[in-house]
């Protein structure tokens, strides 16, 4: 009984709420209440991206798995087989695959989110909803692909007989870190692309270069000590090393480098959020 009246009151406050439309002011604020009210839209837009992406593809969602698997084979043959790089004491393919999981999630998020706001221009100029939903759902849809490709990881762990360790308990933290990094860069690129369409030319280059300066195809053990600070500035270094440590039980990441990497992720994310909120009010005018 009390519960019912509580919900009634809540519904009432929602409809009676006062919306104040004012010129854009300097400081930014995030209306969490509003984001919560629109929470289903995050999921709907992500789901739509996925449905559309795989609807007319003959093998559908299998693509989410094929991509990292093929890349893994190429990298293992070239870097592990021919170049004979070290592999942290685990089979080369699985070391590469564990690195590829967060990296491809990050790269796909970059690709999808940079186009996300511009691609929704018809909705953007017609209907209001919190704009943050757009790049976020682009990242979420990449995240679903990411989860799907985890299946292969389990198969590989059984195949190579790698037992999970207690480190695995920390994996959610590193997944969160990967998500934050992807969303951070997504916020930057999606907002920048509205005003500067140059972004679409920069992204492929960033992805290509990023793959080489992140420990995707190789282990970060081969990075000389004197470069490790600079190397750790790359937000994905902390994420990938964390993944390898949590899943494969490889060498514990240097806490100092981990802190540097994590701080870079947070900086990227907060900066992206700030920039996005600052320019989102002009999206409809300049898109």
């Amino acid at each position: 009984m009390g519960l019912k009246s509580f919900f009634k009151d809540k519904a009432k406050t929602r409809t009676d709420s006062l919306v104040l439309i004012k010129p854009q002011s300097g400081l930014f604020s995030i209306n969490f209440q509003e984001l919560w009210a629109y929470r289903e839209l995050f999921w709907f837009l992500a789901l739509r991206d996925i449905l559309v992406k795989y609807k007319q593809a003959a093998i559908g969602v299998v693509w989410a798995v094929i991509q990292p698997v093929l890349t893994m084979i190429v990298f293992s043959v070239i870097f592990g087989g021919l170049a004979k790089l070290p592999s942290d004491g685990v089979p080369y393919p699985i070391m590469v695959y564990v690195g590829l999981l967060p990296w491809q999630f990050f790269a796909n998020s970059m690709r999808a989110s940079s186009q996300s706001v511009v691609g929704k221009s018809t909705i953007l100029t017609k209907i209001y909803f919190p704009r943050l939903i757009i790049p976020t759902s682009a990242v979420i849809s990449g995240f679903i692909d990411f989860l799907v490709s985890f299946v292969i990881l389990f198969v590989m762990m059984i195949w190579f007989r790698i037992p999970p360790t207690f480190n695995l308990l920390f994996l959610p933290l590193f997944i969160l870190l990967a998500f934050t990094a992807a969303l951070g860069v997504g916020l930057w690129l999606s907002a920048l692309n509205v005003e500067f369409r140059d972004v679409i030319y920069v992204v492929p280059f960033l992805i290509q270069a990023g793959q080489y300066v992140s420990p995707v195809a190789y282990s970060s053990a081969i990075i000389p000590e004197k470069w490790s600070f600079l190397y750790s500035l790359n937000p994905m270094v902390g994420v990938i090393n964390g993944f390898r440590w949590a899943i494969l039980g490889t060498a514990t990441p240097d806490p100092k480098n981990l802190i540097i990497s994590t701080s870079c992720v947070l900086l990227l994310f907060l900066g992206g959020l700030f920039y996005f909120k600052k320019v989102e009010k002009t999206f409809a005018d300049i898109i």
Binding site: R14, T15, D16, S17, L18, V19, L20, I21, K22, P23, Y128
Partner: peptide, 8 residues
């Protein structure tokens, strides 16, 4: 400014 009291 505009004040709106309700869902639009």
């Amino acid at each position: 400014e505009v004040k709106i009291r309700g869902r639009v």
